[in-house]
Design a binder for these strands. Structure first.
Lengths: 148, 148
DNA sequence: ATGGGTGCAAAGGATTTGCAACATT
DNA sequence: AATGTTGCAAATCCTTTGCACCCAT
């Protein structure tokens, strides 16, 4: 059963199961600790001494693009700010990389802190990601209408 | 009414309204475009030529800590990854900076893409932030029980 | 004069890029 | 051979840090 799940997932998504890709996905599946690039690289360089961090970067990005893994952008580096402190949903456009407010979508509201599984939760944020109105329009103008 | 809202908000939160703080918050309120540090710095350096980017960094971080502004961590830099692609809530501990899964919390489920205000949404992520079980325990051991 | 606030310059890290080498079909 | 994949090194960019200066109380 060595790396069987990883292999299956790659082939199901039409991705060639190279040694590195298989190993990275296998690591991800067996270590649900939300590792970042460096942690994965460090952990795997024992088994694959020739592994390059660039490959880890590229592979993980590709995994996320193909929904083989989730990219978690919760880290408090490289952030932007919002003067509006009322709860609302944020939408990130993958094309133009702008962030929009979606006031009409139901957003998580936190009045007071609450406990979940013994953890103290004091903030919540809901993020949507996709392609914004403007970019959709541009795409339609170039390639003919694909979305309505 | 020049910067009246910004002034009010700072004083309400017990923050001294220095020239820079007032200007930064005023900019944030009047530009709900989710700017990052550099955008704010660039935009403001016209009016305040002596402004330092360090001050912008420090001020915004303090604003977020004091809930004067929201910090949005939707940017796809400095990320971590999750091999589990099923929808679940992520919890970020501000103390130990670890990310946990919360499988029992209601998470946004997206089967197919959907439209919101003309934007095409293909992903959704819900983040909780706070202090985790372990860190709460450590805090209690040091300072006496404050949370149950 | 003392603490808080600001700004400069340097350091520290993470990510990206370009290109060459390698593998696979 | 041609395409896809990997790895190295350099470059780039963002963020943090240390320290000195300035302002207000």
């Amino acid at each position: 059963m060595e790396k069987a799940d990883a292999l299956k997932r790659l082939t199901e998504h039409g991705i060639r199961p190279s040694l590195q890709r298989l190993a990275i996905l296998d690591y991800l599946i067996k270590h649900p600790t939300h590792p970042n690039v460096d942690e994965i690289y460090q952990a795997m360089s024992h088994d694959i001494p020739t592994l390059s961090k660039t490959t880890v970067y590229n592979t993980l990005r590709m995994f996320a693009d193909n929904h083989v893994a989730q990219m978690i952008t919760i880290d408090e580096h490289r952030v932007c700010y919002d003067g509006n402190t009322s709860p609302h949903v944020h939408f990130f456009c993958k094309k133009c990389e702008r962030v929009f407010d979606l006031f009409d979508e139901p957003a998580p509201k936190i009045r007071d802190s609450f406990m979940v599984d013994g953890n103290l939760v004091s903030e919540a944020q809901l993020y949507y990601k996709g392609v914004c109105k403007d970019c959709l329009k541009k795409m339609n103008e170039q390639t003919g209408p694909e979305f309505s």
